[in-house]
Computed example of a mutant assay.
Amino acid sequence: MRIGIVCPYSWDVPGGVQFHIRDLAGHLIALGHEVSVLAPADDDTPLPPYVVSAGRAVPVPYNGSVARLNFGFLSAARVRRWLHDGAFDVLHIHEPASPSLGLLACWAASGPIVATFHTSNPRSRAMIAAYPILQPALEKISARIAVSEYARRTLVEHLGGDAVVIPNGVDVDFFRSAEPKQEWQGGTIGFIGRIDEPRKGLPTLIRALPEILRRRPGTRLLVAGRGDEQEAVDGLDEQARGQVEFLGMVSDEDKARLLRSVDVYAAPNTGGESFGIILVEAMSAGAPVLASDLDAFRQVLDGGAAGELFPVEDADALADAAVRLLDDPERLARLRSLGSKHVRRFDWSTVGRDILAVYETVTDGAASVAADERTGLRARFGLARD
């Protein structure tokens, strides 16, 4: 099958949607499908052979963060050329409601279109206001996927229609087989995310650290991600600062090793999450998860059975839960076991199969419509066969 995938966000800035598309493309290619991904990218960005650059992106505030998007006349021309050259059996667009390549592709494409909606934003006035502009493009979509029930709810409430829920995928064995790193072990709490993006919640974790250290001296916080490291620890005294280790941006391999090494993985996010792929990655690596009680996180953690939850932005509750976990080896072992079993439903072997089933449904439907149209034309011109 020839599959075209449209990535809305800049390929050179890591994010959950980009990782999802990268891993989906790799999974499909490994199964023997021909895949091309169109994505914004700076000129000097090294790209995998299956990624086609649509040109440089610009930063745009979107869903409580800053997304790097690509939109305009030049981008539209590149989209049309890519569609023409690709002659895809199915086009898979991610976030078609954002002002990005996905929307341009929706306008320009013909043939079967599958769209995946990642955003969870129940109060998006912008999406409601933009609906008249989006409607003609969205009506061309053959099938809709939402990565969670909360992303599906956003779609239904703002744009109408419905979607099948297929979660983000993870290569479970990649994380499970990673080698722990000795210097990252022993009374450690891990955090991975953009340091200076408030909704990732690092300030809440930093506020909780003094109480954690008071009750468990020697606990270390390992932080992986880009941002202003000095500003992140401004509120801590010198002793507490010495217990925070910033690792900067880490490779996929080191991310897996970090998650395999820590005693607890903390996800103190404050909102705007439709899924929580990092929770699945942590559980795949065997890291017990301590997460803020967001609807999407609660769903990923099986209602709290596969991880610990604490009230959003409550640093005292976070500290109490972290100490309680670190003091309870049996609870940590139980969470590792429950998490390892729970994540199998998110493995690409399952998620990829479900996405391919959607592709096959829309391509079969398109072939059936085309056959009916040919039969109608033959009958109209007296060429009907016996």
Rank of each mutant, 00 (worst) to 15 (best):
G193F: 10
G193C: 12
G193A: 12
G193Q: 12
R194F: 02
D196S: 11
E197Q: 15
E197H: 12
E197N: 12
P198E: 07
G201I: 01
L202K: 01
P203F: 06
T204R: 05
T204C: 14
L205P: 11
R207K: 15
R207P: 06
A208M: 00
P210K: 03
E211C: 00
L213T: 04
L213P: 05
L213Y: 01
R215Q: 15
R215D: 14
R215N: 12
P217V: 00
G218C: 07
G218Q: 10
R220V: 03
L221R: 06
L222S: 05
A224W: 07
R226K: 15
G227D: 03
D228W: 07
E229Q: 10
E231P: 01
A232T: 13
V233E: 04
G235S: 11
D237H: 05
E238Q: 14
Q239K: 05
A240K: 04
A240V: 03
Q243N: 14
V244I: 10
V244D: 09
E245Y: 00
E245S: 12
M249C: 12
V250H: 06
V250P: 05
V250S: 02
D252A: 15
K255W: 07
R257T: 13
R257N: 15
L258W: 02
L259Y: 10
R260T: 14
D263R: 04
D263E: 15
V264F: 09
V264M: 11
A266I: 02
A267C: 14
A267V: 12
A267Q: 13
G272D: 07
E273V: 03
S274V: 02
F275K: 09
G276Q: 02
I278M: 11
E281D: 06
